[in-house]
Design a binder for these strands. Structure first.
Lengths: 204, 204
DNA sequence: TGCGTTTTAAATCAATCGTTATAAAATGTA
DNA sequence: TACATTTTATAACGATTGATTTAAAACGCA
């Protein structure tokens, strides 16, 4: 009983993600955004509200598509393998990121979150979820002996989380394969049970 | 033989750093900047050039003050201690960062560098220098036996660099002492020579 | 076929953007 | 004291900002 929309919300949201992801929040004007979405500014305001609301929806959309399924996919694997595969994928993604967009969540964490309580909460929540993924992997590995007991699981999960974020920042200005693949080696080595420690505990 | 300036360049540059550091490049207008520096916009343009040039000078100033002396100060210490002290200071700085400004270099790496070749080069160069500091520490430690030989020095340096950047990002939305102090433990543990490996190599 | 409703398109709003022009103020030198 | 030079303060430039108004267009329903 009214004029129908000429666009699908999900499709134009994906285009909004692309724009905000590449240029950031401040550097993207409403006109940039509308053009990228293939809409008029009036349609953007009508469908989503103001600029901040579009960014919020775009970030949610990005997070859902980037973390939602992936965590589940990796968590089916053996713990150490899951972590390895996770970082392998992150590194490949970083190296093939020709436009140097990085990770939109990390970008939000630095540009938007510090000056906006709501985004601060959203970003923190996602980081907690990622940390939770790492924590569950480590705990499983510690139980079945494939991951060291020499460090607290929560500490190791934090290390993995900060390594992930570090790679995302580093790759933004130095997307060098040798650098990224090199730095992850000690971290993965850190997870492996110390052969000698196992021996020690087996002796007495 | 001309009217003298009413300000010292270093003093107003420090104020410019403060402004850009807190709000970023795009969200800071020339008027914001001039007000923060205690100058008129005309004076800003006369003394520094355009907005981008002020940011460039401010970033250089920040880097000089943040990394210049610090690296030398830490490098005098024993290698493992130098690395520990470095991260201790970063964590303390992150936890006492009430305004959540983070690290201006990291902020530049994400907001400005990806769309500006010159800043890309500047940021990359500083990161190379920090990596160099870590590398020299690790190499010294590997020589005197206080740091493990189980991983390549260059790999370990990369790990430390990414951990540093990770902390800087993580602290921006989750400045929790337990989290930051916890995640650094395994990284520092990773550096220590494996007691058993030393034993092994000492046996035959 | 109109009616109510929503979405479009186009124009426009005041405000702010980065930047500059103009002229007064402040110096050393002649 | 007058001149040349630079920095100040003020005002303004055109362009763009986020956001809204107006009216035409496109539907379901009566």
């Amino acid at each position: 009983m009214a004029r129908p929309r000429e666009f699908e919300e999900e499709k134009v949201l994906l285009l909004a993600v692309e724009q905000f992801w590449e240029r950031g929040y401040e550097a993207t004007s409403i006109r940039d955004l509308a053009q990228a979405m293939g809409l008029t500014t009036a349609s953007v305001y009508n469908a989503f509200g103001d600029k901040r609301a579009v960014y919020r929806r775009a970030l949610d959309f990005y997070v859902e598509r980037s973390f939602g399924d992936r965590v589940g996919r990796f968590e089916a694997k053996p713990p150490l393998l899951a972590i390895k595969a996770f970082f392998d994928e992150i590194i490949e993604r970083s190296l093939s990121d020709v436009k140097r967009k990085g990770c939109m969540l990390v970008n939000s964490a630095l540009e938007v979150a510090p000056h906006d309580e709501e985004f601060q909460r959203v970003v923190a929540e996602v980081l907690v979820q990622v940390e939770g993924f790492f924590l569950r992997c480590v705990q499983r590995g510690q139980k079945d002996g494939t991951i060291t007991n020499g460090q607290a699981a929560s500490d190791l999960a934090g290390t993995l989380l900060s390594t992930l974020l570090g790679i995302r920042v580093l790759a933004r200005t130095r997307p060098e394969r040798a650098l990224l693949e090199g730095l992850i080696k000690p971290v993965l080595g850190l997870l492996e049970p110390a052969a000698a420690t196992q021996l020690e505990s087996a002796v007495p």
